[in-house]
Design a protein around this nucleic acid. Sequence first.
DNA 1: GGCCCGATACTCT
DNA 2: GAGTATCGGGCCC
Length: 198
Amino acid sequence: MRILMPHLPRAFFARPTLIVARELLGQCLVKVDRRRRLAGIITEVEAYIGEEDLACHARAGRTRRTEVMYWQPGRLYVYFTYGMHWMMNIVTERKGFPAAVLVRGIFPTEGIEGMRQRRGRSTHLTDGPAKIAQAFGIDKQCNGIDLCARDSTLWIERGTPAPNSSVVTGPRVGLGSTPEPWLSKPWNFSMKLSNEPA
DNA sequence: GGCCCGATACTCT
DNA sequence: GAGTATCGGGCCC
């Protein structure tokens, strides 16, 4: 019997955020856009975990912006920052506990021409969180969508898991004045692709 | 490759 | 009103 639905199931996201973040490396983000597939391998992510984590938007509690982080795992949390950029996160853990993984880096594999059109350039298509949102056409309208729903046009597909030897961890990026210990938590995960320079 | 800086508007205090 | 989970252009290696 063939697998009918390629989506990673909700159980994948309903686990500790650091586990989900690590295991998202090597998986494939897919969007069906006007009947064409846009896809890429996830190469860099960051974990944001709960109201205690002072780098997490949920540090301010449940607000209109952070509402989706409190929903079931497998939802998309999309927010706007710096006056012009959208960011894409995947909600993790259990309903009622605000946590998510920010997708910071992708290696494009399908629909590259479409990404180039949206980005208005031919290189550096998805090597940053706002670039990913622009290349995949993700904005406020995508906030709260369910990556695990049967009829979703956006989902995570099983790829080739990143071997431990390719994974690097480090502090999260762009946190500015966030106090310790949160500023230095090694909750950024990235993988080196074998065809990239070391 | 790197550093510096301005753009820009939304969220929460 | 302040702060912001960034980007791209200009410049200099």
